[in-house]
């Protein structure tokens, strides 16, 4: 768990994405900067989704029924 946290901080990443979201709500955004930030947001979103996919895959591998049958 601590390894995962050190390699990817989900909370920090989501917070960062939400900062980007607020940035795009500003009507006076700098176009060039907005384009860059848009790219950043896309890449960050991909990373987060990839991380979530990994976590979901891990969860699916855990068979809770095995726990029930353990003696």
């Amino acid at each position: 768990m601590s390894d995962k946290k050190s390699s990817f901080d989900l909370s920090a990443s989501i917070a960062e994405l939400e900062v980007l979201e607020r940035y795009f709500q500003n009507p006076d955004m700098n176009l060039e900067e907005a384009i860059v930030k848009h790219k950043e947001a896309l890449e960050l979103s991909k990373k987060i989704i990839a991380y979530l996919n990994t976590v979901e895959s891990t969860l699916k591998q855990i068979n809770v029924n095995e726990l029930k049958n353990q003696e």
Partner: peptide, 20 residues
């Protein structure tokens, strides 16, 4: 996990929608 995913997808969608 599902809630986080939905939140991220919603945020990303919003950004994508308003991006120039």
């Amino acid at each position: 996990l599902q809630r986080v995913r939905e939140r991220v997808e919603r945020t990303a969608g919003t950004i994508d929608a308003v991006a120039p």
